[in-house]
Design a protein around this nucleic acid. Structure first.
Lengths: 171, 171
DNA sequence: ACAACCAGTTGCTTATTGCAATCAGATATA
DNA sequence: TATATCTGATTGCAATAAGCAACTGGTTGT
């Protein structure tokens, strides 16, 4: 799969690769939700992605080298989708996008908490998280998919998210 | 104009607002090229935006508060499009997107130089540029559109861009 | 008066998205 | 062994968005 290459401008090329409604959402769910299987991504999608769109995005992102797919040893049909170095390096961009969205868009409390924590953590937290992502996605993608490693940042973010969600369902 | 609001996630909302092939391109041309009129944006577009798409994007971005439009006193039909505080605050995001694109996508020399300068300048340069953008777009949009103020960052970026372009046309 | 310029609009074709239903193979359960 | 469920998708169809070229109604400078 090739990109269109309307121009060689870095912003344009990035938008050609990621400038649609779903690609970054998929990357976000893999990165922050550790959703590593097709079904996982499909059924836990907050935004409700359709299966054909998800299939198309995964195929495209893999062919661009932004995701990697390996067979799941526990099931001959299952594939495990993992981040690659380029997508891991996207973390600071996602953190800044999240921070910007929190400031200027009608973000909900539960879903904004992770972005705020990530913003407060700053570059040191990002570096730590990126190292943990390398372990979970590149060094041991299978173990990473099945939670056999602990990412302290992911644990913190997920705990805060759960806490906000619980509080919201109480009310 | 309203956004869809599939979810309250900051990344999702940002993609709903800016996640298409043209919105960020238009903002980039206004920010870095100081293209402030419809015709300016249309004819100097490196990627070749169509007039109807440009019109739709400008209308949408204005209605979302991401751009402002004021009448040009020199011509009763002309409008001047200006950045607003939210779009000025997008600069760090654009800088990081540009840096990421330079590392992982087939960026051309001429068009990548601005992103590299902006990355090297870091947060201090971004703050300086954002202050200059506030003058050119918010405090005095008309004067800013007609180059009656000098943005040192914009001058540096444009000079480097021109130099690369000249070098490329020599070869 | 007239040519050039202004910001868009219109009509048309093609490409992309979204939705619901469906598919075949693999696995777990009775 | 039969069957139900789970797997990652695919198909067909309708709606939306993008891309292209021609055009509109008005303004400005000569």
């Amino acid at each position: 799969m090739d990109i269109e290459r309307r121009s060689g401008c870095p912003i344009n090329l990035t938008m050609e690769v990621l400038g649609d409604r779903w690609s970054l959402i998929v990357i976000r769910d893999i990165m922050f939700g550790n959703h590593r299987h097709f079904r996982d991504l499909l059924t836990h999608s907050v935004e409700g992605i359709a299966s054909n769109v998800l299939a198309a995005r995964l195929k495209r992102l893999v062919s661009l080298g932004l995701l990697a797919r390996q067979d799941d040893p526990s099931h001959s049909q299952k594939g495990i989708y993992s981040l690659t170095e380029p997508t891991i390096q996207l973390l600071p961009v996602l953190a800044m996008i999240g921070a910007w969205g929190c400031r200027y868009l009608p973000v909900s409390e539960e879903l904004g908490i992770r972005a705020r924590l990530l913003e407060d953590g700053g570059a040191p937290m990002w570096e730590r998280f990126m190292d943990e992502l390398r372990l979970i996605h590149i060094e041991d993608p299978v173990g990473g998919a099945y939670g056999r490693h602990v990412s302290s940042v992911l644990v913190d973010l997920t705990a805060a998210y759960q806490q906000m969600q619980d509080r919201a369902s109480d009310a």
